[in-house]
């Protein structure tokens, strides 16, 4: 179980043993499966991709077929310790409303998303005059699932407006590695951010 995806290994540090978690867009259930085995965490994943959902079931993970864009009204207030969402914030209809929902249901939340303010992205637009594409953002402007791209600053301003407190923040490259140079100028040099937030 040691070969956990790098972003997930960052996330798992912030999750307490024996806690209750909800993973929005849980993929094949890697994080849930790891946390269940290593930290005796109980949780549910939400997923709509049929193959991934079947993989979750094969992995013995609790998975619910539910579209994030249809809301999370079926989860009760403050019923979950940590609500996790990796690389999906930019792909939902209303990221701001979903953030509110995450912190209504969860005492804490962890979100990861790609930084649209990454220097290569900035230069791509500046020099080519076209919507940026990269390994992290491999889509054309017309077929991208990433409909609400933001920069780290955008996200932090939204958090401030909403009264959301940032408990932890880790900024990494596209391989989810931390690096001293990123720490120097994260808003420019970081490709992916992992935020640990709360409203408490």
């Amino acid at each position: 179980m040691s070969e956990l995806r790098p972003d997930l290994s960052i996330i798992q540090q912030w999750i307490r043993p024996e806690s209750e978690i909800l993973d929005l867009g849980c993929g094949e259930g890697e994080l849930l499966s790891y946390l269940k085995n290593e930290k005796n965490v109980h949780g549910y994943g939400l997923e709509i991709n049929p193959e991934k959902l079947t993989a979750c079931i094969r992995n013995g993970v609790n998975v619910i077929e539910q579209n994030l864009d249809n809301g999370l009204g079926n989860f009760e207030d403050q019923s979950i310790d940590t609500v996790v969402m990796t690389q999906a914030l930019q792909a939902v209809q209303r990221p701001d409303e979903l953030l509110d929902e995450m912190l209504r249901i969860g005492k804490e939340a962890i979100v990861t998303f790609p930084n649209f303010g990454y220097w290569k992205t900035r230069f791509y637009l500046l020099l080519k005059g076209r919507m940026p594409m990269s390994d992290t953002l491999p889509y054309n402007w017309y077929d991208t699932p990433n409909i609400h791209m933001c920069t780290f600053r955008d996200f932090e301003i939204l958090c401030r407006e909403k009264g959301i407190r940032i408990l932890n923040k880790t900024v990494v490259d596209d391989q989810h590695r931390e690096h001293w140079s990123i720490r120097l100028w994260p808003a420019m040099l970081g490709e992916i951010a992992v935020y640990h937030i709360t409203r408490r």
């Binding site: 993970v61 609790n62 077929e65 009760e76």
Partner: peptide, 16 residues
């Protein structure tokens, strides 16, 4: 059924 099971903290998976 699924939501009642989630609220009761039971292990449940659901597919439509």
């Amino acid at each position: 059924i699924v939501n009642a099971l989630i609220h009761a903290d039971k292990d449940v998976s659901y597919a439509c």
